[in-house]
Amino acid sequence: MTFQELLLKHKSSILGDWVKAIVETYPAETARFLRQSKDQFANPVGAAIKTETEHIFDQLVSGGAERQELDKFLDRIIRIRAVQDFTPALALGFIYDLKRAVRRRLEKDLKQQGLEEELLKFEETVDNLMLQGFAIYVSCREQIYDLKAMEMRNLYAKVLERSGIFTVVPDQETLEPLSETDEQNKA
């Protein structure tokens, strides 16, 4: 059995472990709600964790993981954690939890079949995933500060401009809430 096949075979248990680890970063009273409530509208956080972890896993297993796709999936989880009560480390730590889950479920099989090398490679992929996640997290935080500034500007700029206190009219480009690079990052 190849490493990939092993991953696929244990997919549900690995994902189960991974989701559990993520959900347990929340208070116990909340964790249950996140895990149990199936309604994606009543429970958007839980739904995002569940669906996106699976997407990420599938991408990684498929071999030809696409960076952009991964970005999209990671973004949906990290965007939420970036505004919740987490330190940056806690907000992103969930990515490494995938390593733990895989090791825990596959360790025996891998030893038996001499596939430890493959595991190391896989863990390297997860390390890269963390770097990707880091970029997303930072861009989310930057965006928050950007938006704070934008809001202040929207609130007062027009008044100041019209009362003559603000004489230089900023052009449309700079009034856009996002810089070009942010747009690209998100695409």
């Binding site: 929340y26 208070p27 009273e29 909340t30 709600f33 996140l34 409530s37 009543a42 429970n43 958007p44 956080v45 939420i80 505004v83 919740q84 009560d85």
Partner: peptide, 17 residues
Amino acid sequence: CADKCHFFIGSGDPKNM
């Protein structure tokens, strides 16, 4: 009411129930 509050759903802070 516990899971009906948008702040609870979004923050996961139990005191927002």
